[in-house]
Amino acid sequence: MTKPRLLIFSDLDGTLLNHEDYRWEAARPALKRLDDAQIPLILNSSKTAPEIRNLRQELANTDPFIVENGAAVVIPAKTFGNDEEQVVNFGAPREEVLKVLAAQRESGARFRGFEDMSVTELASVTGLDAESAGRAKERLGTEPLLWDGSDEELTAFRAALAAENLRLVHGGRFHHAMGIFDKSDGARFLLGKYREQHGKDAVIAIALGDSPNDQQMLESADIPVVIRGVNSDEVQLPSAKHAMRSIKSGPEGWNECVLNLLFEYGY
């Protein structure tokens, strides 16, 4: 019997990357197995294109990737017959998001976004080095922010953004102001491209994430994997999805779950 083709979609912070120091080495065994089996690993994160490009170099990853919670999909040259790299955009551009946020601040909303912070300040808040913090500020369609108001004010703020056709999504560390898109949009788009490429061969989509920010991506996958983390208990999937949940957190849990799934499917 022919093995199905697997496609891996993975969140980064708190999932493939350790929440404290952003390291991925604990997942090295599973990453090598994916590479040996030529199974695409599609990074799907709130991180920016420059941030993910840098990490892809470390991982020797050459697959498409999804940036800023689905703001854009980047398709490397020669992936689907395309001669040059392609960028497919979803949702509102960042300029529109910042304009709405500025109006909300004038109305009394209390928050600090990446646009408000210098590279040094952002490095201090995130634990990133200055170069990495600079990459994090180069955004296409989203604005991460730290909320400084009350829970009641946050509810009102969320509603005000919704009235402007924007969403506020809570990730592992920041809230993300963004257009009407999420991580599942880019994942579904790429899944369609791979299924078209492979014709009649079965393609099974596996998604790994650790926070409510990953909810839609996990729901859209054939096999959702919830990695243990700070907010993972808030991820509640439909019972029909039969989600896998890791025992360990971060890259350790990622490694174990991916290795188990590869064994299950004969890789």
Rank of each mutant, 00 (worst) to 15 (best):
G171D: 05
G172S: 02
G172M: 02
R173I: 08
R173V: 07
R173P: 01
R173T: 06
F174W: 05
H175Q: 04
H175V: 06
H176F: 00
H176C: 00
H176A: 02
A177H: 10
A177E: 00
A177L: 06
M178L: 12
M178D: 03
M178C: 04
G179R: 05
G179E: 04
G179M: 01
G179Q: 01
G179D: 02
I180C: 12
I180L: 14
F181H: 13
F181Y: 13
D182K: 08
D182G: 11
D182N: 14
D182T: 09
D182C: 07
S184H: 07
D185T: 14
D185E: 15
G186K: 09
A187L: 14
A187G: 09
A187N: 04
R188H: 02
R188N: 01
F189L: 15
L190A: 11
L191M: 13
L191Q: 14
L191K: 11
G192F: 01
G192M: 03
K193E: 15
K193Y: 12
K193F: 07
Y194T: 02
E196C: 10
E196T: 10
Q197H: 10
H198N: 13
G199R: 14
G199W: 04
D201Q: 13
A202W: 04
I206F: 06
A207E: 01
G209T: 11
G209C: 13
G209H: 05
D210G: 04
S211I: 08
Q215S: 14
Q216R: 14
M217V: 08
M217Q: 05
E219I: 12
E219C: 12
E219D: 06
E219G: 10
S220F: 11
A221E: 13
A221G: 10
D222S: 07
D222M: 03
I223F: 02
I223K: 00
I223G: 02
P224S: 09
V225N: 07
V225Q: 10
V225R: 12
V225M: 12
V226P: 00
R228H: 09
R228C: 08
R228K: 13
R228E: 07
R228P: 01
G229V: 03
G229R: 07
G229C: 07
V230C: 00
V230H: 04
V230N: 08
V230R: 14
S232F: 14
S232Y: 06
D233I: 13
E234Q: 14
V235I: 10
V235K: 01
V235R: 06
Q236N: 15
